[in-house]
Simulated assay, not measured.
Amino acid sequence: MDTKLIVSASPHLRSEETTTGLMANVIVALTPCVVASAIIFGLRALLVTAVSVVACVAFEWLYCKLMKKANPIGDLSAVVTGIILALNVPVGMPIGELLIGDFVAIIVVKQLFGGIGMNFANPALVGRIVLFISFAGAMNKWVFPDAAVDQLSSATPLAVADPNKLSLLDLFMGVHGGVLGETCALAIVLGLIYLVVTKTISIAIPAAYVGSMFLFYLIATHSVHAALVAVLSGGLLFGAVFMATDYVTSPFTLKGKLVYGVALGIVTFAIRYWGSYTEGVSFALLFMNLWVPYINDMTRQTPYGYVKPAKKEAAGK
């Protein structure tokens, strides 16, 4: 059989995976968090999630209709954005305010920059930050499970003065206040396992992010318990699994993913430990999203067969 040399633009290797398939895997992985939020906070958690999903899909459909663009709602990316944003707000979040976050995520961050694959930051992440800055009261109005222990009745775990008083089991199972998706670490871990097993994401970013945070807190507090509390509290696990691993806004090389994860850990730790803000995941993610193009350039793989050009000899030799 005759062989032909085919010269074309990249990519030269193609995968049978589709955007719809990848997004469907993420939806499946998010399901334990949605179910856990309903068990912990009640059925309103499902209402908040459903409204957010419908709003994101509707905003994307309407924008593309008005702009006479091909409608991309079948790729399920708007559904994923809606679920993630819903899981980043408290159960009592007013629906009208939530819709503003959905609008910012889909229209401002995603569509105005060209649609899926063109956004400079994670749409749900920016929507969450806009809601936090614009409606701080609603975003910090925690609802606590009935089984929550007394010391959590007036503060989220990150705001408790002595982390050694917190139960690791309660933190792992979600018996504390917080936003819908961050409370139950068990549900997040189940989602992570599914995403890794189906090869939807690499374990590199979550491992580097969470691992570096644990190490930094261990060095700072000299307490394994306090370090584990820091890992299990706030939005660290949820952000590491479902937001830091976003294809568009994370590095594409293994070295880049590790650098990205450790850098996220450094920024988050700095905000939490030295700053006046007890959380830090959202702002750390947004900050590092902006650095991803530079990380990709610095960690780019050397092409096969590449030979570094010799330095030019000094003039006159």
Rank of each mutant, 00 (worst) to 15 (best):
F41K: 09
M288K: 02
K255Y: 03
W274V: 12
V241N: 00
S202H: 13
D102N: 11
A136V: 06
P251S: 04
L169Q: 11
I116C: 01
V80Y: 02
A24L: 15
G117H: 09
A263E: 03
Y63L: 04
G96D: 13
S153C: 05
V126Y: 03
F172K: 00
S134P: 08
Y247E: 12
T31Y: 08
L195Y: 06
G117E: 05
G117V: 12
K317M: 03
V281R: 06
T183M: 14
M93L: 04
F242I: 09
F41Y: 12
A86H: 03
G239H: 08
P123V: 04
V196L: 02
L125N: 03
I201G: 00
A105T: 04
A58L: 15
A138W: 02
G117C: 11
I39V: 10
P90E: 12
N88G: 13
L87I: 01
L169N: 10
A263K: 02
S134Q: 13
V231F: 02
S37N: 01
S37K: 05
C33I: 12
N25P: 09
S153Y: 04
A270K: 05
A244T: 01
M1R: 15
C56E: 10
P90F: 14
I39E: 03
V108C: 08
G211V: 13
V281E: 07
A147G: 06
P94Y: 01
V307W: 00
W61S: 14
R272H: 08
L190W: 07
V307C: 08
K68S: 11
L264Q: 00
I219H: 10
T3K: 06
G96Y: 03
G280N: 09
I201N: 09
A314R: 15
E16A: 15
N140R: 00
R300G: 14
G234M: 08
A185C: 09
L192Y: 10
V51F: 13
Y217S: 04
K68G: 08
R272A: 14
V175H: 11
N140T: 15
S77F: 09
D150F: 13
S233G: 08
W291C: 12
S77C: 11
V89G: 06
L180K: 07
T31C: 11
S223I: 07
E97F: 03
T245H: 05
L168W: 08
L180V: 02
I116P: 12
D246C: 02
K165M: 11
F214K: 13
V229P: 01
V26A: 13
L236I: 14
Q111W: 02
T156C: 02
A315F: 15
S153F: 09
V80Q: 07
V175C: 03
M93W: 04
S282V: 06
V281L: 07
A207Q: 12
V35K: 01
E97K: 13
Y247I: 15
I100E: 10
L236H: 14
V7Q: 03
G96S: 11
A315K: 15
K255P: 08
A230N: 14
D170I: 04
D75F: 12
G239K: 10
L169H: 04
I73Q: 14
S233A: 00
S276H: 07
V224A: 13
P11F: 01
Y194Q: 01
A315C: 14
P72C: 10
F216S: 04
A124D: 00
S276M: 15
V109W: 00
A207M: 09
G256H: 06
